[in-house]
Design a protein around this nucleic acid. Structure first.
Length: 651
DNA sequence: CGCGAGTGTCATTCC
DNA sequence: TTGGAATGACACTCG
């Protein structure tokens, strides 16, 4: 297997890798589409057009996987896997095989999916196979491309061979898969296995032989002028493809013309599209020997590598259709995380210089794209696709050698929260929250890249159902079991059920946005119930905190009041003491004045008046009379008696 | 080990 | 009717 010039495009959250492969003497245009799900918008469309879900985690809502036991599908699956499609077995990417068979007609509608394929492919890939004018902007205007701008499209794997029994082939495959007859299925299975063995043996031989044919690539170019098997007008089914795969002689490409295959287009600069540049660039493509894996791991270093760089100085830089708008640009895609397993797998499988032609421009694109994600390290961004949790949750049909485990990093989980409910009833397949989708909510985009409380510890085991049991008395046990101590219980539950929103978001979101959010995503009843519980508990938690704060404030205020009243009481007591002292002083003064007055009084005979026998009495007109005390006391008694009588009369 | 403060949660009431 | 605030009660954690 030879890998020719690959290139990346990225647009509207869609990551598109176009590979030109030669496989067992056949040219295969392989378009890999990676998207951050939710891909729900296009799942139905793809389903309606017969696309196959390659992802083992996506067999929901009517989609189905390719049946490895079915001869054609199994073979197809194995072949695609053998091509190094890394995300099929291990990740939650909702990988789709749009098994289009390119007719090569110039109108861009071709393949098993017909026009759907071309539209689903969007830019770049469809044009490569279609022999279009090479203008990527044309494909960008396709229906799906337009929808991709909205941020929802299917990660699509498209394998093209030549020919055009598209929908027919599709129907055949579908019927075979959906056949209920176990015996016939078993026969198909056996046939498929044997056929596969044959094809693998043959293709392996072919690969080895191709490796021994250094001038082989040039023959591709030369064969452009031959038309024994013209991509443009040859009907070529998928079965034909695999038949060829298992039977093509070593130099079968002599019989294959590349005529009708458009020049590399889409993301390559316009000048490349000219026929003159076509062969030149193609030659360049096959002559490069680039270790993509290392380059991916150290893109900057690679970019400075003069040896590697010189090969590409003639190449126009690849055009990256990345949007500067963060709402649309690659929210959850990491080229490094994605490509690393690709390279590893290709290395493992071929031991050839499969990656002999990889443009450094790829890496030039990757970094800005990773940067465009806005603070995510590239490895972090893709981490959810391979997080350990998924392995626990998913009944993996993993190929043991399919993927090299990528580095584990703690990630900002919120924006990349896996949306795969494969492990739940009514699972909807691998989906990822679209940050830009969230941006459409009133929350605003500022929430998207916030740091949130999902501190994933990659070695942390997935919360089991035990940890999903309600807290209460098992709380302590859960804490001991679960090393994810940073996560609250609700966060752990949300993580376990792959709730695509953060707890904080769920709690703080206005009720209208909350309801619209629930209706906008495919959520199971369990998830909705959990989300509502999380919201209720979160609200109540805040309410309890406020309540306690108020209570505390109330207590503090009461304590202040007590202190103030005590201080006021003390002040009043002091004031009363001062008043009593003043009264005593006044009494003393009055006493002294009284005796002073009597000492100066004389009776008719000139003798001093005895104050013990007489008293001073003030009349109403202000005159002062000297009255004997007996009269004063009797007068007081009479007045008192009068007062008593008056009171008795009133009663 | 007991205690108290702090916290989360549930049930209930009220708006 | 629904969402949510308020709050008492209970259980749990932690120092």
């Amino acid at each position: 297997m030879k890998l020719f010039k690959p290139w990346w495009t990225a647009r509207g959250g869609l990551l598109h890798l176009t590979l030109l492969l030669s496989l067992a003497g056949l040219r295969v245009d392989l378009d890999l589409y990676l998207l951050p799900p939710p891909a729900s918008l296009f799942r139905d469309e793809l389903l309606a057009r017969g696309a196959y879900a390659l992802s083992p985690f996506a067999p929901s809502r009517g989609s189905r996987e390719l049946d490895p036991a079915a001869p054609l599908e199994g073979q197809l699956l194995r072949e695609v896997r053998s091509l190094g499609v890394p995300f099929i077995p291990r990740t939650r990417v909702d990988a789709w095989l749009v098994h289009s068979v390119a007719t090569g007609d110039a109108d861009g509608a071709h393949g098993l999916l017909g026009a759907a394929a071309s539209s689903a492919v969007g830019e770049g890939g469809s044009q490569v196979a279609a022999g279009g004018d090479g203008d990527p902007r044309a494909a960008r205007d396709s229906p799906l491309a337009g929808a991709e701008e909205k941020g929802a499209a299917e990660p699509t794997t498209q394998v093209r061979d030549a020919g055009g029994r598209a929908s027919q082939e599709n129907e055949i495959l579908r019927e075979k898969t959906e056949a209920v007859n176990p015996s016939s299925k078993q026969e198909e299975k056996e046939e498929g296995v044997s056929a596969h063995k044959q094809s693998r043996q043959q293709s392996g031989d072919n690969e080895n032989k191709m490796a021994d044919a250094p001038g082989w690539e040039a023959e591709i170019l030369e064969s452009r002028n031959e038309s024994h098997l013209n991509w443009a007008d040859t009907s070529f089914s998928l079965e034909d493809f695999f038949q060829l795969l298992s039977s093509q002689p070593e130099h079968s490409l002599e019989g294959i013309s590349l005529e009708g295959i458009p020049p590399f287009s889409g993301c390559i600069n316009e000048e490349v599209n000219s026929s003159a540049h076509y062969s030149t660039n193609f030659s360049h493509a096959v002559s490069h020997d680039v270790n993509l894996h290392e380059a991916m791991l150290c893109p900057n270093t690679f970019g400075r590598d003069p040896v590697a760089r010189t090969s590409y100085t003639q190449e126009p830089p690849l055009q990256l259709y990345s949007h500067t708008n963060l709402e649309q640009a690659l929210p959850a895609i990491n080229l490094t995380g994605f490509l690393t397993p690709v390279i590893n797998q290709m290395r493992n499988q071929t031991n050839q210089d499969l990656m002999s032609d990889l443009d450094t421009n790829i890496f030039d694109e990757i970094n800005p794209m990773s940067l465009a994600i806005g603070g995510f390290s590239s490895l972090e961004v893709f981490q959810p696709f391979e997080e350990p949790d998924s392995e626990l949750l998913l009944n993996s049909s993993h190929d043991s050698n399919s993927i090299t485990k990528s580095n584990s990093h703690s990630i900002n989980y919120r924006d990349l929260q896996p949306f795969s409910f494969h492990d739940l009833e009514g699972a909807v397949g691998g989906c990822y929250t679209e940050p830009h989708k969230l941006c459409h909510m009133d929350l605003g985009c500022q929430h998207v890249f916030h740091n949130h409380t999902y501190h994933l510890q990659t070695c942390a085991p997935e919360p089991t159902t035990e940890s999903l049991t309600w807290p209460g008395k098992s709380q302590k046990t859960n804490r001991e079991i679960n090393p994810d101590r940073d996560l609250s219980r609700d966060e752990q539950r949300a993580k376990a059920l792959h709730i695509p929103f953060s707890v904080d978001e769920i709690v703080r979101m206005p009720v209208d946005n909350f309801n619209s959010m629930l209706s906008r995503y495919y959520l199971t009843d369990l998830q909705i119930s959990l989300i509502r519980d999380i919201r209720r508990r979160g609200k109540n938690k805040v309410a309890a905190q406020n309540c306690r704060k108020r209570k505390l404030d109330l207590i503090l205020n009461l304590e202040d009041d007590i202190r103030n009243l005590q201080a006021k009481k003390e002040a009043l007591n002091r004031e009363r003491g001062q008043c009593n002292k003043a009264i005593d002083i006044m009494k003393q003064k009055l006493h002294h004045l009284y005796y002073d007055v009597f000492s100066k009084l004389r009776d008719d005979q000139g003798r001093p008046v005895n104050p013990n026998q007489y008293a001073l009495q003030c009349s109403h007109d202000g005159t002062v009379l000297i009255v004997p005390k007996d009269l004063v006391t009797s007068g007081h008694r009479k007045e008192a008696q009068k007062g008593k009588r008056k009171g008795e009369r009133k009663n």
